[in-house]
Design a protein around this nucleic acid. Structure first.
Lengths: 354, 354
DNA sequence: TTGAAAGCGCTAACAC
DNA sequence: GTGTTAGCGCTTTCAA
């Protein structure tokens, strides 16, 4: 049997196609009786509803929003912080009647999801601004919102106060009396100026750490690849064995966890022989022994806010970049270095706002 | 300036619109020189590429695959097992040039993602078969693949041998000498026959547990809600306090974790006073103390297989239901009940195939 | 190798 | 309330 379309229903009922369309899409445009009759006939014919592709073409809107990552789709799920962010994004989209289309990296030259998949707008999450996917999305002239990045004034962003949070962490170590401090983070990419960095977040956190540290107290910076725990442990071990540090500032709680493993391997006790500061306040940090001092961010709020911004853009409203606050949470992984005098303000306690 | 379309490029270059279309979509259909000329002009005009919605309508294919859950999108990310599954699904889709569109529950009557979002086919993950979303997808007549479910012969499924794995877990407890055994699982729904169950997986696991147990050795079954850890702990505590069991079979490793917490709270030591068997072989189980005896499934393989099945369907090939094996992994959470004689085959050791 | 014709199925805008 | 007109931007088929 032939495909059921608005036209076939219209023919059967004896009305125009437009009336049938209205029955589905604008119920207030026709009488209840007529609508009832049309819907019944449609059901009889096995009509599901207006074809989404045709509707998307005619209306110019699809009901789906893209999400672009730097890497494979699994990255959205494997990292706990990313997963929580995307979960919040998804729910907030759902609340607004939008589906979430995760755009994979192009499998080949001919099909480029960032260019070829039907979406009304997109969220760009922690991507290298020079990546091809970002470039394609930008060319499409659809609303874009950057998350944890800075693409310049053209693209509104939702991000956190990475720099302030990092600064608070470093200051906390200084207050405790540490003077030889290491950093364990991701390579921010070659560009260290104010322009785009391959990894914006890492660059910001490094900048924040360095503010109170200056050139005097930073002993070493170790870059670890983002993905594999073992690689991070290796980088952490190198940091501890090759440099004389009493404390380490970490890119994330996951990195801090790797540092715990490295410290254990080289026989340094936390916090007695080594203080550690994480970032994110991932639930993971509470399961570590000792519980991790870290910088809290609200990833769910970030996700929701990004969706709100994109939804506003989709409705033609203008939107500005938003920066969410961060907060130092002092737990048990930081303490004065052996034999140092302590600045009173750095005593451990309940969460402090930076 | 007006929107750039194939037609505007064609006008500028002085060829037909069709030739421009071919330049983008079928490069072998025109001379390299012509193509080069067209592409250059297109770039000058700021043309991104064929409009995805228009192309979807004309071609009948969109390049996106839907994923339907029972609940909000965040469920795909919050449960570790689900997240790992979906991550595998996403990567495998990406490899095939397909985007992953996560279909949220309908926000209202007018927009129903399962019905109204452009997709070529869909994966249905652990949904109640009587849910509205499933019904809409089914009516659309697009290729569907069920995961961890049974929708009957019309919808090919990819699932695991839940029943066999559960059976192996129960048999293991019997072999150790346990005779009073509890179950901690999700309510499988009212239908306990061979037809659809609200929670297919729970029903299958219960059935598997009961095979070796019979009516003699099952002491109690406790149902916990799927979501909140605290609720599961509460259900587990009730199971332990209201029933005299020496061992408990759990729906998942996450449920087993809740049982650990409950056992701790009521002062039962694992495995001395209580044996516990999980399901999934979530990495979580290894972090528990003692490490969890569980039933292993390969969720990544399941995800990949589901995508393969759907991709085959999309290409018009026929596909049959596939069932992946499960495997009992004996660790330290199971032991003979105090003072029981032990069946030699149940001694702890390296992973055993059931 | 290029082009013309004929849709894909639907909706906005307006007239009846 | 209902119908008419005119596309949305692209691709398929087939002829030149």
């Amino acid at each position: 049997m032939a495909k059921v379309t608005l036209q076939s229903i219209a023919d059967k009922v004896g009305v125009s196609r437009m009336t049938v369309s209205n029955a589905f899409s604008r119920p207030d445009q026709l009488s209840a009786a007529m609508r009832e009759r049309i819907l019944t006939t449609a059901a009889e014919l096995g009509y599901v509803g207006p074809d989404p592709a045709a509707r998307a073409l005619a209306r110019g809107r699809t009901g789906a929003v893209g999400l672009l990552f730097n890497g494979p789709i699994s990255e959205a799920f494997e990292d706990q912080v990313a997963a929580e962010t995307v979960a919040a994004v998804g729910d907030e989209l759902g609340r607004r009647g939008l589906a979430l289309t995760i755009l994979p990296p192009p499998p080949d030259e001919t099909f480029i999801p960032a260019r070829d998949v039907v979406i009304d707008g997109a969220l760009v999450y922690a991507c290298d601004p020079s990546s091809a996917g970002v470039a394609w999305l930008a060319r499409r002239q659809i609303p874009l919102v950057a998350m944890d990045q800075d693409f310049g004034a053209d693209v509104p962003a939702v991000r956190i106060d990475d720099r302030g949070g990092a600064r608070a962490g470093a200051q906390h170590l200084l207050d405790l009396g540490h003077r030889r401090i290491g950093m364990l983070t991701i390579d921010p990419g070659s560009d260290t100026g104010d322009g785009p960095a391959a990894n914006y977040v890492s660059r910001e956190r490094i900048a924040g750490w360095r503010e109170p540290l200056g050139a005097d107290h930073e002993v070493a910076i170790a870059y670890a690849p983002y993905k594999r725990h073992d690689d991070v442990v290796a980088a952490a071990t190198r940091l501890l064995t090759e440099h004389d540090v009493t404390a380490v500032l970490c890119f994330s709680d996951a990195f801090a966890r790797a540092l715990y493993a490295a410290a254990d391997a080289v026989g340094r006790a936390i916090p007695e022989d080594l203080s550690v500061v994480g970032f994110d306040d991932n639930p993971l940090g509470l399961t570590l022994v000792p519980p991790l001092t870290t910088v809290r961010q609200d990833v769910s709020a970030k996700g929701r806010l990004a969706v709100t911004a994109l939804a506003d853009l989709l409705q033609g409203r203008s939107v500005t970049t938003q920066v969410l606050p961060t907060e130092l949470v002092v737990r048990d992984s930081t303490a004065p270095p052996s034999g140092a005098r302590v600045n009173p303000s750095a005593r451990r306690g309940s969460p402090r706002t930076r």
